[in-house]
């Protein structure tokens, strides 16, 4: 079982790296959806005590529905409605963002065992995977021009936070997790509204054009 969990964590990080390299918006959204679905499986794989099983199933089901289906559907809809061009348009090139991502992943895996975190015997790849995913999300938010791809970055960021949450899933009440998901949902929602407005005003979703706004 351990090696299977290993594989899931490794896949999550590989998806992070793939996201940094991908230039197609549609492919990136689908990849984030796959990452969400993989993460949804984790609570079931990591559950140690049987009385927590219900909690885990709830968490997994909720994550799968929201991360794997609902939010990607929303984003595809947004792309269609706002007729956004299907490319990522990075601020820095794909190669530098991949290299930066790799540096972050390497540092996370090299040094995470030295962090003062409540380990509680959880899986060894958990913390570095969470850190790498958060780092990737931040990179995506910072280095992509389009509002949609920034939303994508936020999603990846939240995925990382979610993995962190798994560390505490035994102690953390389901409400906290629900709160995080709700936050995210609200964020996507607000971004969606903002996106529509930017699009109407400027006929473009390039956030760099916002800096031309003056009162």
């Amino acid at each position: 079982m351990a090696s299977f969990v290993d594989l899931v964590f490794v896949l999550v990080v590989v998806i992070d790296l793939f996201l940094l390299a991908s230039s197609r918006l549609g492919a990136a959204i689908r990849t984030v959806a796959i990452q969400g679905a993989l993460l949804a499986a984790l609570p079931l794989l990591l559950v140690r005590e049987s009385h927590n099983l219900g909690h885990a199933v709830l968490l997994a089901g909720g994550a799968l529905a929201i991360k794997g289906f609902f939010i990607p559907w929303l984003m595809f809809r947004a792309i269609r409605e706002a007729s956004i061009r299907r490319e990522m348009e990075p601020v820095i090139g794909f190669v530098p963002s991949m290299v930066l991502g790799a540096v972050g992943v390497a540092l996370a895996f090299a040094f995470s065992s030295r962090l003062p975190l409540p380990d509680a015997g959880a899986h060894g790849f958990l913390v570095p995977t969470a850190l790498s995913t958060v780092w990737t999300g931040l990179l995506l938010v910072v280095t992509r021009k389009k509002a949609v791809s920034q939303v994508l970055g936020f999603l990846v960021l939240e995925n990382g936070v979610y993995v962190f949450g798994l560390l505490l899933s035994d102690v953390m009440p389901v409400m906290v997790e629900a709160g995080v998901l709700l936050d995210l949902f609200a964020a996507v929602f607000v971004m969606g509204i903002v996106m529509f407005h930017i699009n109407r005003e400027f006929s473009s979703l390039d956030t760099e054009k916002l800096s031309a706004l003056k009162d």
Partner: peptide
């Protein structure tokens, strides 16, 4: 090619 390097860096770090 950089992607291949990045993958293998990750594998090595693991």
């Amino acid at each position: 090619l950089v992607g291949a390097s990045v993958l293998s860096v990750f594998a090595l770090v693991l």
